[in-house]
Amino acid sequence: MDRKIRVIIGKPGLDGHDRGAKVVAAALRDAGMEVIYTGLHQTCESIVEAAIQEDVDIIGLSILSGAHMTIFPKVLNLLKKKRAEDIILTGGGIIPEEDMKKLEKKGVKKMFGPGTPTTEIVDWINENVRAKSKKTKTKKIKKKTGKNRS
C-alpha cells in the first residue's frame, strides 16, 4: 500500500489566529493524511526543520497577521538552501489576492483564500502529491540509469 500523505500545518510568526489552521488540520487528518500541527509562534527555520525531519510531502502555512510577504519567501529560501524543494509549499489566511498571485509566482504552489471548502484542499493535495511522487520516481530512475552509465 502507498504510504499516507504527510502534511505539516505551520503557524509561523506571532500570529495567534489558529482556527483555520486547526480546522484544516482536522479535515486533512479525517481524509486519511498524517498531519503534524506545529502549534503557534514558530520560526520559519523550525517549521522547515520539522518538515525535513518528519519527511513531509507538503507544508501548509496559515498567516492572518499581514506578514505573509516576509514569511512565505523566507520559507521558500530555506527549502532551497536545505535542498528540500521537493516539499510542496502551500498556505492561506487573510491575504489580498494581489499578494497571493505574487507568492504563487515566487514559488508557493497554491494559495487558498477564506471560504475555501476543506474538501477542495484535500483534493488539491491528493492530486499534487500524486503528481509529485510520479515525478520523483522517474527522476530517481533516471538518476540510477545515469549512474550505471558512468
Binding site: 510568526g13 506571532l14 500570529d15 495567534g16 509562534h41 520560526t43 497577521s65 499581514g66 506578514a67 510577504m69 516576509t70 514569511i71
Partner: peptide, 18 residues
C-alpha cells in the same frame, strides 16, 4: 501590532515582517 501584543520591540527577531 503583534510584536506589541506579545511584549516585543520592533527590532526583535520575531517582529520581522510584522
Amino acid at each position: 501590532d503583534f510584536p506589541t501584543l506579545y511584549g516585543r520591540d520592533s527590532d526583535d527577531a520575531f517582529a520581522c515582517g510584522e
